[in-house]
């Protein structure tokens, strides 16, 4: 394996990890506020569909992005109403949202485009184009650093850079601001926030809304950045891998970066080498695809470090005497 191959694999990892990272951070906000969200998959799917649809109809990817965020936010609102206002079961609500997105995207897609749930292929201004960072071409020939800068760091769509910027931004928001303090508190012990005169409901809705926006970015990237259009079930379990990454990351922003990179790398390797041969052993691609899930189970089992979720996670808040 030469240097260029490594750069190519890493480059592809970065592309593949971006939706995972955005969705993982989305889940982080929600779960840190005590609202479990297994509906990341559905929200991403809905966002991918709305983004691709509006981008296809208007030819403007930015309007597509806005629509993607709106689609995802709408489902977040459903989750919020069910799990915050009506104190329903957050897991069941998440399951429902996944199905809702899965069904609605095809139903609406068929109605609008009649292509069996697909949108037309996007091109030109209906897609996010790759950004060439300054001096990328000039620096390409510099050994080692050149290709890293020109081929790995440069040449991604804006959403990739946004996703990476979200990591320090999330860290700063969580640990350096009033909002972050309250958000973390409401996921650990909502009664402490409530008795301090701060609305648990409002905080949790805010967290769920941020989750919706980030899932919207993730879905929009899938349909208008990574691919050129929406196809049925195009998230293909990424929402669940993001969920797995969140556990892997122990609910921290930098952990999320690491975990999603790892999972993106696994996917990139599996894509490049369908049957990876290590010495005499051939590793089937199915194994590589299942590896994120297997790793997460191992982490969950506590064999490699313990993953302790936010204490109040999954529990609707009921005032107690």
């Amino acid at each position: 394996m030469d240097f260029n191959t490594i750069i190519q694999i890493l480059d592809s990892s970065v592309r593949l990890m971006t939706p995972l990272l955005l969705a993982c951070l989305a889940g982080l906000y929600s779960e840190r506020a005590g609202v479990f969200d297994i509906g990341l998959e559905g929200k991403m799917l809905m966002a991918a569909f709305s983004a691709a649809t509006v981008a296809a109809l208007t030819g403007n990817v930015w309007l597509g992005l806005a629509a993607g965020i709106a689609g995802s936010l709408a489902l977040s609102l459903v989750h919020g109403v069910a799990s915050i206002t009506f104190r329903g079961n957050q897991l069941i609500s998440g399951v429902a949202i996944n199905f809702l997105a899965s069904g609605l995207t095809v139903l609406l897609g068929q109605k609008i485009f009649g292509l069996g749930g697909r949108t037309p292929n996007l091109s030109g201004g209906a897609r996010f184009s790759e950004i060439r960072l300054p001096f990328a071409d000039q620096l390409r020939d510099v050994p080692v650093i050149g290709p890293i800068y020109a081929d790995l760091i440069s040449g991604h769509t804006i959403l990739v850079y946004v996703a990476f910027l979200c990591v320090p931004a999330t860290w700063w928001l969580l640990y350096r601001t009033r909002f972050g303090l309250r958000l973390r508190a409401v996921g650990e012990n909502p009664a402490s926030v409530d008795t301090a005169g701060v609305s648990v409901t409002r905080l949790r809705y805010a967290a769920v809304a941020i989750c919706g926006v980030l899932c919207g970015l993730a879905g929009a990237y899938l349909a208008t950045g990574l691919s050129a259009g929406f196809v049925k079930e195009m998230t293909a379990g990424r929402g669940f891998i993001a969920l797995a990454a969140l556990i892997f990351a122990k609910w921290t922003p930098w952990g999320a970066l690491f975990a999603t990179f790892l999972f993106g790398l696994l996917e990139a390797i599996a894509n490049r080498y369908p049957n990876l041969e290590i010495g005499p052993v051939t590793i089937p691609s199915m194994f590589m695809n299942a590896l994120p899930y297997i790793l997460t189970v191992i982490i969950l089992a506590g064999f490699v470090g313990r993953a302790i979720p936010p204490r109040a996670g999954g529990e609707p808040y009921v005032k107690e005497r």
């Binding site: 459903v78 109403v81 069910a82 799990s83 009506f86 329903g88 079961n89 957050q90 069941i92 609500s93 399951v95 429902a96 949202i97 996944n98 199905f99 809702l100 899965s102 069904g103 609605l104 095809v106 139903l107 068929q110 069996g116 749930g117």
Partner: peptide
């Protein structure tokens, strides 16, 4: 499309399980 069923299924889960 037959995906309508998935929507109905989702709504049944939502209303009976989460919005009860």
């Amino acid at each position: 499309p037959r995906e309508l069923i998935i929507v109905i299924q989702a709504l049944v889960i939502l209303f009976t399980g989460a919005l009860d």
